[in-house]
Amino acid sequence: MNNRPKVAFYWCASCGGCEEAVVDLAEKIIDVVSLVDIVFWPVAMDYKLSDVEALPDNSITVSFINGGIRLSEHEKVVRLLRQKSKLVVAYGACACWGGIPGLANQYSREEILERVYLTTPTTANPEKIMPPQDGYAKLGDVKIEVPTFLPELKPLDEVIDVDYYIPGCPPTPEVTWNAINVLLSGKLPDKGTVIGASNRSLCDECPLNKTKPENVLIKEFKRVVNYSPRADTCLLAQGLPCLGPVTRGGCGALCVKANMPCTGCFGPLENIHDYGGKALSFLASILDYENEEEIKREISKLPDVSGLIYKYTLPKSLLKNLLRSVRK
């Protein structure tokens, strides 16, 4: 072995997009690989968990972990990686705040399993086979250990101590590269910092910001399913609930450049206590009606308020502990 920094990648409850994002570094990944030793990366390399277990504590320089914690297996592996790593980085929206899978925290474990295994329109499961919840499954005569489905999805830092956060769904190659440079620079920022991205909201770097009128007031919340935005004007000013103003910048306004409003995957800025609460506040503020009935009428056209404002951050909401308990 040599003295190059050891790096681990791991995925929890995620779609695989974050893994793709690492590969999207393209030729730069060769630079990365030449600078580090990758000691664990289940999606790409054939190391076993036992290889990690065999490493001394704190021997991994940095572990990049993506996805939220939804299975007992996730908990087990990330605890192990924490033990073996000097630094742990929550990589991507799911690891940072729960991400899209975190929206399922509005439902109980039983509701989710029932929905997924029995009642979706595309499910054919006449024998009503459900995943075992005692941690074991039988394969013929063999009893094997299987992960259990946890009561809720947790962001990484609610299970282990996290040093840095890289936001995005997924983080863009630029953000990833910036973050890697920060980590390799030797001058580490304060613990808990979001690295690689901007410290201002997306509007700061959005090419359409200058087309926004001084008075941003809208008469309706439009939706991309039935409205084709003009490419030359701020999407929010056109009535699309673009979350750019409340979302950390750093992505280069990729969605907006593709004529899609920002949905908030870079999460909140550091002094925001609740991303959704703040998103709600600014969106409602600019709804240009003075009369309650008119306001209600426009709001009623929004199909899914929690999905809009907490698309990536529901498990970090201030209400996170109250979601299940009050749900019938």
Partner: peptide, 8 residues
């Protein structure tokens, strides 16, 4: 405006 949306 804010708390009408908040109630929702």
């Amino acid at each position: 405006r804010r708390f009408t949306l908040f109630k929702r």
